[in-house]
Design a protein around this nucleic acid. Structure first.
Lengths: 357, 357
DNA sequence: TTCTTTCATTGACAGTGGAAAATAAGGGCC
DNA sequence: GGCCCTTATTTTCCACTGTCAATGAAAGAA
């Protein structure tokens, strides 16, 4: 532990003791990892059950809530459909979700120490304000304040992809890395970036817009106004549209489109090939610019991952410059519960920071 | 000063006094900036003349050396043509350059406190080793050690674009910004990135490869093996090749190509328009991913900047997503002397760090 | 001259973290 | 079981950083 933190052993003792006394850390033994010689180390482990957290992720039609422990393990997950997208309705649904999860927490006899909320769009985490969410059609909603009043809990609010990235950084595939990217494939194509050990937020609230990198200036038009954005080729809507055009089958959604491709329909498979190519190029662009140690591909689109995996890999290998190709590109299934877990992770983060004072 | 550093006034006093006693800071007065009320502040200023530094930038055919003061102001600049590109020849030329500059420093009666060297390619700054420079055809050259033996000075070695970025961060248009990009246009298209206040180095030595972002998959082939990289459209070689093809005139270099365009030859102007478009898209990609506060466009290519300025601006405005377009894109002429100054900046940086111990 | 405002400095003090010594906990060897 | 040897952990100072509160200084205003 001292080696990892770059501190002396004495400093570790002094830092750890109060945490053990407060019950956040417990001593542990691992007979397996004992050295051949000398006194074995005293292992400590975070006692996850010492405090609970709630994370809420708001999508277009559902609010997803999870109850997690201090180690961000999901204990209970709940989904409630949204009746409307205005702040009042969303807040009411979220409060309902929190109430249910608080009852679960009561059953465990542990207090809930914080609530994290994740919303897509431009979110000012420090102020807890949703500056602009195109998806929910919100502008300057002081969500943290409103949610704190409604629930009585300390609230953190963050952009959903950033929250997911925080969860990966602290508890997922990004642990110990100083630079990595999380790429989410689904309705939109998003990206969370960690550089120098911190999540990139962008000067004006914009960062990680991998979905709007142009991969083909002659490609299909995107809702952002440009042509050939990654999202205009590989987003769910784009895939549905292209599969319809290529096969003539009026598929209703991405699941049906993937079904056609899985059935071996050539036109549909080609759409996924192009999509994989676009995503791979987008990832290569991130790798060429930032040199991350790892790229984690995730999102609902992962359900159809076998359809574009090879194309992502090929396009990445081709477009990555020099050693950037050595970046570890891997997938990780992260369903919506995991996004809510990301929200909880931001709450845990701010709980730890506040306690550290 | 206390407010800026987030420290108490008392801490500033204690930090500043030894620096004044050592002569690195001197008290100053600024009658202009006196407040209406109360005791005016004691201003301090870095005494640039207290220590000198040498920066050397190695290009394909020349070694450029500058002597700077502690404020990184260039006092003397010298150029020596390179006879060959192997480490021995380059080192000999660099040592010659350093000798000349040391004589100049002697004339000023101030000691030279460090030497910085900037080389293109994959450079391990911490170890002072040039891992791989395609341009010089070097592999694993321990340049810092060799140069230290040859000159007797403490040596820092860094990638040339990163060094230029450090100079901008400390002494140029990046002062006070936590995130910005330096884009260099010339023989190659390079990019130095600062995120969270630190220069991005990349996990495998690759970062900022804006030149190899694909802007047109159907575009001309690039030496990296792909098609339609920014560099394959807007690099000097690419421009010369395209101007020749478009006009039939066998221009010898980028200067002649720019001459044709300045004369109003349509084909040549169109080449610059396409180049500007490619650069603008590349910058937009950086802005979409990282949300920098500013982008500084520079490099030898700036000499022809009027030919693509509008196209860069237009392409950026179109391809930037949402508030990313609010990023401040500006130009700054940075001739090769400035790259050498960047090398000196890295030396100053490590001098300050070592002294702080 | 005296008051107000803003800076600068000082000295006491708390917190962090390091070095070195002391202590603890194994295993092997006699 | 005793006696090494090795590695971990803790304790006891001690240095350093930075804060707080008090004091002194410099300027303009009354």
């Amino acid at each position: 532990m001292a080696r990892r933190a770059g501190l002396s052993a004495a400093a570790v003792t002094k830092a750890v003791r109060p945490l053990i006394e407060a019950g956040y850390l417990v001593e542990d033994v691992d007979e397996g990892a004992r050295p051949a010689l000398g006194r074995p180390a005293n292992l400590v482990r975070v006692d996850g059950g010492r405090a609970l957290f709630i994370g809420v992720k708001v999508t277009g039609d559902t609010a997803i809530g999870v109850l997690t422990d201090l180690c961000c393990r999901i204990l209970v997950a709940r989904h409630i459909p949204l009746s409307a997208r205005d702040p009042k309705a969303v807040l009411g649904t979220a409060a309902e979700l929190v109430r249910e999860l608080l009852i679960e927490a009561d059953g465990l006899g542990v207090r809930v120490a914080g609530l994290g909320m994740a919303v897509s769009g431009d979110v000012d985490r420090a102020e807890g304000v949703v500056r602009y969410s195109p998806f929910l059609e919100w502008r300057d909603v002081p969500l943290a304040e409103l949610a704190a009043m409604a629930t009585g809990l300390p609230v953190t609010v963050d952009n959903d992809v950033r929250a997911l990235t925080v969860a990966e950084q602290w508890f997922g595939a990004g642990v110990g890395l100083s630079g990595f990217a999380v790429v989410t494939v689904g309705a939109g194509i998003g990206c969370g970036l960690v550089v120098h050990g911190k999540v990139v937020a962008g000067a004006h609230g914009v960062a990680g817009e991998i979905g709007h990198i142009t991969v083909d200036p002659a490609g299909p038009r995107c809702h952002c106004g440009n042509r050939g954005c990654v999202e205009a080729i590989a987003g769910d809507d784009a895939i549905v549209r292209q599969v319809r055009a290529a096969t003539g089958v009026q598929v209703a959604d991405a699941v049906e489109a993937a079904g056609l491709a899985h059935d071996g329909v050539t036109g549909a498979r080609e759409v996924y090939a192009r999509a994989g190519d676009a995503i791979g190029r987008g990832i290569a662009t991130v790798a060429n610019l930032l040199g991350p140690e790892r790229v984690i591909i995730s999102g609902e689109g992962l359900a159809a991952y076998d359809l574009f995996a090879d194309h992502i890999r090929d396009a990445f290998a081709t477009a990555a410059f020099g050693s950037a190709a050595r970046c570890d590109v891997r997938t990780r299934p992260l369903p919506f519960d995991e996004w809510a877990r990301g929200a909880a992770a931001t709450a845990i983060q701010s709980f730890i920071r506040s306690d550290a004072n």
